[in-house]
Design a protein around this nucleic acid. Structure first.
Length: 285
DNA sequence: ACGGCGC
């Protein structure tokens, strides 16, 4: 299976797992593994039945396209869905709807020069395409979480991982090494933050945070809608709530602006004297 | 517990 040349020890086996999810649709089990190696990130989707296992590798930048396509198949009436092709890097993914006596299914095939064609087949489900919808929801979660939620096992010092360059054959050529400009976990961690049990709404990825200041609470929630991804910051005092919706494209500016005001007011901020002063320099690059 | 795909 994993015929890897050069004695490096297995295709993708040493890659860092950023996020793992499983989904059961009828009797199939789908594994979603967001992984990272020095060449970039990718999403490995495996279909497992009792007898077979099949895997496709989606380049990181293709995740949102997969999400869009699953949305298309979920939301379209069955009489007007078409097959789709998605070209990513050197790969082509084919999406085809089929039907047999077991029901409708979506066949997703990956074709690339270096690998044999591999295919996963996602049952539509019995009602309202709920199998596809569940698959779509997982993709949405991964798509959202992967952009902001840098997991703790993602090393800040990349020295160790730099020695692993070229290790994995699981990733097609032409990958983007896209992990340089992302904020680190500590950049996004606010002092006095406490973990919040999952609240209100779908699309919330368990990355909700709350901070308290005086009598107010501020909730930070990731979300997305058809216009993109955003951070919602809600001020809750008593029973009143008001929110600002911050597109992720503006998050860094927001961060820098807050840092500016922290900087110019820090001698008046309680608890920030002396060694506790935590300057909030904008991340370089 | 399916079963599609494609060889």
């Amino acid at each position: 299976m994993e015929g890897n040349s050069g004695g490096t020890g297995g295709g993708g086996g040493n890659d860092v797992e950023l996020l793992c999810k499983t989904l059961q649709v009828e009797h199939k089990l789908f594994y979603f593994d967001l992984k990272e190696n020095p060449r970039g990130r990718y999403l490995k989707i495996s279909e497992k039945t009792s007898a077979t296992r099949s895997t496709i590798i989606v380049p990181f930048d293709g995740i949102s396209w997969f999400l869009d396509l699953f949305n298309y198949y979920v939301n379209s009436d069955k009489q007007d869905v078409f097959s789709k092709e998605l070209q990513l890097d050197s790969k082509v993914f084919y999406f085809d709807v089929g039907e047999n006596r077991r029901g409708r299914f979506l066949k997703v095939s990956e074709a690339s020069v270096s690998r044999n064609r591999s295919t996963i087949i996602v049952p539509a489900g019995s009602a309202r395409d709920e199998g596809w919808a569940a698959f779509r929801n997982i993709l949405a979660e991964i798509n959202e979480a992967s952009r902001l939620f840098i997991l703790p096992n993602q090393q800040q010092n990349s020295e160790a991982s730099e020695r692993l360059v070229g290790l994995s054959d699981d990733v097609g050529a032409g990958f983007i090494s896209g992990h340089s400009s992302q904020p680190t976990a500590s950049d996004l961690t606010v002092d006095r933050t406490i973990d919040l049990p999952p609240p209100d709404e779908i699309g919330n990825l368990g990355v909700s945070k709350v901070i308290r200041a005086d009598q107010k609470r501020f909730f930070f929630d990731l979300g997305s809608n058809n216009r993109g991804h955003f951070l919602r910051i809600s001020e809750v005092a008593g029973s009143d709530r008001s929110s600002i919706i911050l597109p992720l494209s503006g998050l860094k500016q927001f961060y820098e602006m807050v840092g500016h005001f922290v900087e110019i007011t820090k001698d008046r901020i309680e608890g920030m004297a002396g060694a506790n002063v935590r300057t909030v320099d904008p991340p370089q690059r």
